[in-house]
């Protein structure tokens, strides 16, 4: 059946996509590769849940099967959650269907039978709105739409055996041991930038964080180039995207790949000895000064509140 098809390996995100798809006033069909996720998705009330069953348990190996389903059903839109798997599947499905793909859409609009979506470019400096022509694929990150429990629709479950790509084999999986804090949930973050001269000096950032009850993050260079902090703690477009109430950047230059990751923070504070540092252009408050002097003073001042 024609309509909007949604997929995400993340069930909550799939619920968000179902809620978004409802705004199209078209049929809403969820696609999954497991009976278990299929039953979990029922509470979000898609009209139909297609459970695809193949030999290979790698989700990416279903790209061909999903493209075939969308073609057979004459789908108008394929929405995929912008997870690692979702991005990969979306791009392969789009290629197989000769379709356009709007990646990481912050908002999606259905208007007069047309579909448009807005996305950031240039590390969040610019925003581009694109309109789909024909069947379109869109990926949407989590948290953009709210999942809605919908008991009023009794989903029809359709199980089908499909061909999967046998060429990719997943041989193992291990959880990522988070060495650092879960920055995405932190209310306050102190960020370490290249203004720190040596690894031992990070104690200054940790002391300030302790006074604030904050977590410590860093820029990509600190984690990747200097190896001073775990990769999980670097903030930016390719790392953690955070939204604390208070974000304090110590010796951070403010390259946009980094500041993209903090753009949703409530208050941004920059401390840098270079008055012309980019960070001041994206800060609410900036102190021009030596972080080695400012950070300990700030820690003391906060302890005395």
């Amino acid at each position: 059946m024609a309509g909007v098809y949604v997929y995400s390996d993340n069930t909550e995100l799939c619920g968000e996509l179902i809620a978004l798809a409802r705004t199209s006033e078209q049929e809403v069909c969820a696609v999954t590769m497991s009976d278990q996720q299929g039953s979990e998705l029922a509470k979000y009330g898609p009209d139909t849940i297609f459970v695809l069953k193949g030999q290979n348990h790698a989700a990416e190996s279903y790209s061909g099967a999903i493209a075939k389903l969308l073609t057979d059903q004459d789908a108008s839109l394929f929405l995929a959650g912008a997870t690692v798997r979702g991005r990969d599947i979306a791009a392969q499905v789009a290629a197989k269907m000769k379709a356009g793909l709007i990646s990481e859409a912050g908002s999606v609009n259905f208007c007069n039978g047309k579909i448009s979506a807005a996305r950031y470019m240039y590390g969040g400096l610019t925003e581009q709105v694109e309109e789909g022509k024909g069947l379109t694929v869109i990926t949407v990150p989590s948290g953009r739409y709210a999942a809605v429990n919908n008991d009023s629709v009794k989903s029809v479950v359709v199980s089908m055996t499909v061909d999967t790509d046998p060429r990719i084999k997943i041989t193992g999986s291990s959880p990522i041991v988070k060495e650092g804090a879960d920055l995405s949930k932190a209310g306050r973050i102190v960020c370490v930038g290249m203004g720190f001269d040596k690894k031992e000096d990070l104690v200054i950032a940790h002391k300030l964080a302790e006074a604030l009850g904050a977590e410590v993050g860093c820029t990509r260079c600190i984690a990747e180039d200097r190896g001073w902090m775990p990769a999980e703690t670097y903030i930016g477009i390719s790392g953690a995207v955070v939204k604390p109430d208070l974000y304090i950047a110590l010796g951070v230059s403010g390259q946009i790949q980094h500041t993209f990751g903090v753009r949703d923070s409530k208050i941004i504070v920059g401390v840098n000895n270079n008055e012309k540092a980019t960070i001041f252009g994206v800060s609410d408050y900036g102190i021009v000064g030596d972080l080695y002097e400012i950070a300990p003073l700030l820690a003391d001042a906060i302890k005395n509140i």
Partner: peptide, 17 residues
């Protein structure tokens, strides 16, 4: 496959004090 409807800068509405 997609038409670009608009392309513009994002205003980072920070206080910059």
């Amino acid at each position: 496959k997609t038409d670009v409807v608009s392309f513009k800068g994002c205003s980072m509405s920070r206080k910059k004090i």
